[in-house]
Design a protein around this nucleic acid. Structure first.
Lengths: 321, 321
DNA sequence: TTGTAAGCGTTATCAC
DNA sequence: GTGATAACGCTTACAA
């Protein structure tokens, strides 16, 4: 059990003033001899500066608060991995807020109180109160998933996704399409933007939209209800999880329409038939988020930027005859 | 943009000494009137104590470092959720170390330097160096996944799991069994303990063991190789992911043995046929880990405890005729 | 019950 | 290049 060794101890052993040691540590001017002497003593004592004292002195630290809506989402976890991979020298404080705005606000306030260097928020929906809190705090913030003009943000190109999927749908020439979507109010980017292009392509095709949730189980139930009433030959889920839920429902009803999903990719290759899906690279998105954060952290008054991440349609067996 | 308000500001406005405010904040003795006065001013100014100043003074804080081998594992994420759910008033610092002992050691050292209140380590394998570092640091530590007698730990009951699965296997009366396991050195609890009971049950049954990795893709490849050489009527995967990989291989080879997995539960209900699997409640495990941490944090010199989490066999379609 | 004052470990500002 | 010394915001004896 080692007791804490302070800058003072180092100074004493090196027979210099602690201010000299401090300068040594922070790359100030120190004579080569002194430097070598301190070098050795620091190493021998395994000295590590006290984070709290540092933080107290310089109103700054290398801790970034990360808000995650749900940790049981592949997309989110991939983005975290991306953040981690791009990370230079920061510590991430991760708060899982279970898609609850109340928790979200609390977590953000706590982060601000802890004087984090900045906030990265993976979110679907900012309440007005959170918006204000963020603006007032006046710290670097990067948003993902919500297109808020006041903030730096990284977005999936859901419009393009919808457009490409829309075009693809037409090549399948379906007769009757089931859309399993989520509430726009819950997630605008997905609920609205993602489906703009899809719906445009469906203008002259019979189709039906059912609002369900992100949970596979719920989606399965809702899909079963819809598919029980009438017959569809193409089912589009707002996410892969939803599409897979529908596949399960169809399986039980012994129906075999085409299926198409969006998003993550754990599910898609496991189900049989494998799921055709419009996929985004969430890992790379995470990296981009971190890079953007670095940029706005360093350049003082940069205007809110928007970065758009493209994706691509991966055709698999679920849309093949 | 609000500037920081300190305990001094509150004291001035309330016309008391800052020590009084400090006492107020920490539940010391304060007269009702003073209390009310401070109460109001604190609220009006939205005062939040500076974490660094607090941490500097009292060598203690409410931050717990959590080491996670991989975030792309359902089991791990569930445990994190459990931790979160049981959490009273702590902040979790989560470090994803990608199953890399080097990163693990680095992360642990960093946590210790940051003077975390304790460490929760979800791990499969402690190197000797990490063991020593942990012991030297002399802070509360709870381990999960590694049965180290020197530490408080929460373990899955892999022995019991193996035994139950072993009994179940016999009811299936297979002729030739393929075991897809992982290296014992990588994960003793899974590689060795989990399969003790299984192998005992297989004593008089022809079987073959192949070592693969936790990755579904690799497992699929290894399974394909083995299943290509001879015919099996039961395939047991050390994890669900491995079993699912094998299912995919079998599907492509047009073989349809029974399949059986262990562990998490995302996959099991999605594949068709649904996967029979021995399941642990990782969420509850997370809660237990936190509770145990609380206990050893508060009681000074408690002997290293061991908590064992049972599981249950869920029979699904993959082992039905 | 309240106030005074002495640190906690670090960095920053000066003189030397 | 170096060393006193004063903060940073808070807690905690110890006095009053």
């Amino acid at each position: 059990m080692e007791k804490k060794v302070t800058i003072q101890d180092i100074a004493r052993q090196a027979k210099v003033a602690k201010s000299t040691v401090s300068r040594y540590l922070n790359g100030g001017s120190v004579s080569p001899q002194t430097r070598r002497k301190i070098d050795e003593i620091v190493r021998k004592n395994q000295y590590i500066p006290n984070t709290f004292a540092q933080g107290l002195k310089q109103e700054k630290n290398r801790t970034i608060g990360v808000i995650v809506p749900r940790l049981d989402s592949m997309a989110q976890v991939e983005m975290l991995r991306g953040l981690d991979s791009a990370n230079q020298n920061d510590t991430f404080l991760i708060a899982n807020i279970y898609q609850d705005p109340i928790r979200e606000l609390a977590a953000i306030k706590k982060f601000i109180a802890q004087k984090v260097a900045g906030l990265i928020i993976l979110t679907a929906n900012l309440t007005e109160e959170i918006r204000q809190t963020l603006l007032d705090a006046d710290i670097p913030v990067v948003l993902q998933g919500q297109d808020e003009p006041d903030f730096a943000r990284v977005m999936m190109d859901d419009q393009q996704a919808g457009k490409i999927v829309g075009q693809y749908i037409q090549t399948l020439s379906p007769k009757n399409v089931l859309i399993l979507n989520v509430d726009q109010k819950l997630d605008w980017a997905i609920g609205y933007e993602r489906f703009q292009g899809v719906k445009a392509a469906l203008a002259n095709i019979s189709h039906h939209e059912v609002i369900t949730t992100f949970k596979r189980q719920t989606a399965k139930l809702d899909a079963a209800k819809a598919m029980g009433k009438q017959h569809y030959d193409l089912v589009i889920g707002a996410t892969d999880a939803i599409a897979v839920g529908a596949m399960q429902a169809g399986f039980e009803l012994n129906q075999h329409p085409y299926y198409l999903g969006f998003g993550q990719s754990v599910y898609s290759e496991i189900v049989s038939p494998e799921l055709t899906s419009f996929e985004f690279n969430f890992f790379e998105t995470g990296e981009q988020i971190y890079d953007l954060f670095q940029k706005i952290r360093n350049e003082a008054n940069i205007r809110p930027v928007k970065i758009v991440i493209p994706g691509q349609l991966i055709r698999r067996a679920s849309t093949k005859k």
